[in-house]
Simulated assay, not measured.
Amino acid sequence: MLFTLVFLGGGGIERSVCNVLAGLDPRRFATRLFFHHRPPPGREDRLPANTEVSWATDSYDYHRQNLPLYLWHLLRHAREADVIVAGQEGRAALLACLAGKLLGKPVVGMIHFDWGAFHREQPRRQLWGLRLLYPRMQRIVACGHDTARSFQSLVPVPEERLQVIPNFVDGEVVRAAADGPVPDWAGPVFERPVVIAVGRLEPQKGFDVLIRAHALARQEGVDHHLLILGVGSLEAELKALARSLGVESSVFMPGFASNPHALMRRAAVFALSSRFEGLPMVLLEALALGCPVVSTDCPSGPAEVLENGRHGVLVPVEDAPALAQALARAVLDEVHRKDLARKARARAEELSSAKALGAWEALLDSL
């Protein structure tokens, strides 16, 4: 089985693909993971141990003229595969479809975003690509039911080709990582109760709304710190926003963290402020760690994971005052916070990785 990604980033898409590869029964499935670009140094521990890993180029930069090179290397490895799985939308899906067509191999496409919301922020060619490529795939796997409905409203695919296999995490692995040490810089951050968020510093994640909510809660006397882990194009803009709101001393943005779970476990609250998602991996990881969760009710994923608020607090998208109020209560009210932590752990137990992996193995067997 050949799974393909563009590169090994720090996001949920890569983690979801690696979780599938790590969980497939190695006695039944020989697996390979192919990247267009070499994995960055320091992230080798994210790669599944039982999977052969290869890539097309040592360069981390994308140049359109290199597409034939990526395809040539993909074809070399795909010749030995029974099934090609496009681990993400976009370029990975394009080249997986081309390789499948040229080699006569079945292709599976993975859908990670709520495309009803996501396509509005993307060039029109992205939606054209979905409508061109995915109806030609033998199977499409959506990470959640809401994500599947949103996708099908945009792309006409037969019901029998679209399957929902929810994202999942290995709770034991996540909790073991959380027992690790925290970086030296974390000491001053945790001198106050911490609201933690993890994700790319991009518009989708709504960190501008989260910083505004943090400032509103501070104005109401809630003494806490905000820790945002991640890198992205909005770093300078978000730091400028914190300065303009007078909270630069209580907002910490240290960049990429190799072990965010150790920091998440020590936080008072986990916040997800996204404008849209698919089925966010970091939310599943927070539940596995027993983190009290406050999340936007964005399309799609949080309501599905939290069962419409039974296992965490949901607030409207773009509503900084509502987010501030929910975070403030979680920080200040110990009884409420412990109740949210209990509900998080209970929900994590319900979201079985075994069920999802069984569905993946049955799907791959059928092809």
Rank of each mutant, 00 (worst) to 15 (best):
L8W: 03
L272F: 12
P299R: 15
A148T: 04
K343A: 12
E202I: 12
G232W: 10
V269E: 03
P203S: 06
E44I: 02
L314F: 08
L67S: 09
V313K: 13
F256S: 06
A30T: 09
R28E: 14
L130M: 13
N259A: 07
M1H: 00
G180S: 14
P156D: 12
D146R: 15
L351Y: 09
A93G: 00
P183R: 11
H145W: 07
F118D: 03
G12R: 00
A197G: 14
H224P: 01
V209L: 03
A262S: 15
F270N: 01
S300Y: 09
A320L: 03
E361A: 15
P260S: 09
E285C: 02
V282A: 14
P106A: 12
L130P: 06
V189N: 00
G144C: 10
S295T: 01
A359C: 10
V335A: 13
R200T: 02
R43S: 04
L98S: 07
L327W: 07
Y70M: 04
G9I: 02
E307N: 12
L95F: 10
L287A: 12
G246S: 09
R212S: 13
E307P: 09
A176W: 13
P292C: 12
V293G: 08
A99R: 01
R76M: 02
R345F: 04
L284I: 10
D61R: 15
R131C: 11
C18R: 02
P26W: 04
V313S: 10
E220Q: 15
F270T: 05
A213G: 08
T51A: 10
A92H: 11
A93H: 01
A177D: 11
E44K: 10
W55N: 04
V141C: 12
E350S: 15
P321S: 11
A240P: 04
G180L: 14
P254V: 08
R275D: 00
G9K: 00
A178L: 14
R345C: 04
F252E: 02
L95S: 08
V222H: 05
L306W: 09
F190W: 15
G230P: 03
V195S: 08
R27V: 06
A22M: 06
A288R: 04
Q138R: 15
S258I: 03
A236W: 03
G301K: 04
G221K: 08
G301M: 05
G90K: 05
A56C: 13
Y70L: 00
A148Q: 14
W115Q: 14
T57I: 08
F270A: 08
E14F: 08
A328K: 14
T31F: 08
G104N: 11
R266K: 15
L133V: 15
R275P: 00
A178Y: 12
V53I: 15
L216G: 01
T31W: 06
V107W: 03
R27W: 01
P260G: 06
L367V: 06
S249H: 13
T296W: 03
F35E: 07
F252A: 02
A56H: 07
S273M: 07
G104K: 06
D58T: 07
V305E: 04
H73L: 02
D179H: 14
R139S: 10
P158R: 12
H311D: 12
G199Y: 06
L351E: 07
P260H: 07
A268T: 14
A341L: 12
G10P: 03
L103E: 03
C291K: 11
